[in-house]
């Protein structure tokens, strides 16, 4: 059930990212809401949930895009895992930390995507893409991170209440 709800949430975020934020661009870039959610899940529920969210997020995003299916998965899974391993006390009551983490997460995710993409014939220059799009998109996503984090935190609280999730990470 948790995976299903996360999948629905990812789909909704994809739709918002592709439609709503297409009209609300920041210097020609859109936020990576799915990665924002992966980071938020990892912060809230640890590396395993972060990796699961990364797997679902990467896979659904690729399916909805329609090509290079699976290429987004490694970056998002790795980011979900890495962020999930950061001790939770680091995030306590400091909204700047999720913002900064999300910024770095977007940069890492896109870097992995672009580097892997080079192997599969995506001719996009890593440096140019990073400079023109990724950094701006990372800033945009990072600014929205507190909202996504609150949403995911409330969602996981609801999962716990309904018994769909049992907190596993070390505090």
């Amino acid at each position: 059930m948790r995976a299903l709800i996360l999948s629905i949430l990812i789909s909704i975020l994809f739709v918002f990212q592709s439609s709503f934020f297409s009209h609300l661009q920041f210097f020609g870039t859109r936020p990576d809401l799915i990665l924002g959610m992966v980071v938020a899940v990892a912060i809230t529920a640890g590396p395993r949930e972060g990796a699961l969210a990364g797997l679902l997020g990467g896979f659904l995003a690729d399916l909805l895009r329609g090509n290079f299916i699976g290429l987004s998965i490694p970056g998002k899974v790795l980011v979900g895992l890495a962020v999930g391993f950061i001790p939770k006390r680091v995030y306590a009551d400091n909204f700047l930390v999720p913002i900064f983490t999300t910024f770095l997460a977007v940069v890492c995710d896109q870097l992995i995507f672009l580097l892997l993409g080079q192997s599969f014939g995506i001719g996009q220059s890593v440096w140019i893409s990073m400079r023109r799009f990724v950094l701006l998109s990372a800033c945009y996503t990072a600014l929205l991170a507190p909202i996504i984090a609150k949403l995911v935190k409330d969602l996981y609280h609801e999962f716990q209440v309904r018994g769909w999730y049992k907190e596993q990470r070390m505090l």
């Binding site: 690729d62 090509n67 299916i69 699976g70 290429l71 998965i73 892997l116 599969f120 014939g121």
Partner: peptide, 16 residues
């Protein structure tokens, strides 16, 4: 499996 999936979907796809 992931690499195969990415590879097979990396070209021009007319069918989904």
């Amino acid at each position: 499996g992931l690499l195969v999936m990415v590879y097979t979907t990396s070209g021009e796809r007319t069918q989904i």
